[in-house]
Amino acid sequence: MEALATGHLFALTGAVLVGLGLFGFITLRHALRQLLAVNVSGAGVFLMLGGLGRGAATTDPFPQALVITGIVVAVALTAFGAALILRQAEEDHAAKEDDERGGKT
């Protein structure tokens, strides 16, 4: 009974995280915040997946293997997204400076 309850705990927490992430993605406008919101949702999905392998006596390693792979993929994409956001910020900054210089002369 307790094992069942903890199993549900993982799934329910995961669902809450997915929902929070989605809410954040829709309501937040800044790209960095949206990227973090997607990560919160991703953590929720990984929690659900991770909780699946939990049995009464033994633990099925298959879902865990998927979660590890998924986390690696998610980290890579987050780093890539962060680099893109940085590049965008640099471009915006340069464009703004150009505007100001153009305004003075």
Partner: peptide
């Protein structure tokens, strides 16, 4: 455009993975 593409693609991936 690429950043917009990445964020929407990531969201699609979350739905798929769910």
């Amino acid at each position: 455009a690429a950043l917009r593409y990445l964020l929407i693609a990531l969201l699609g991936s979350i739905f798929y993975l769910l």
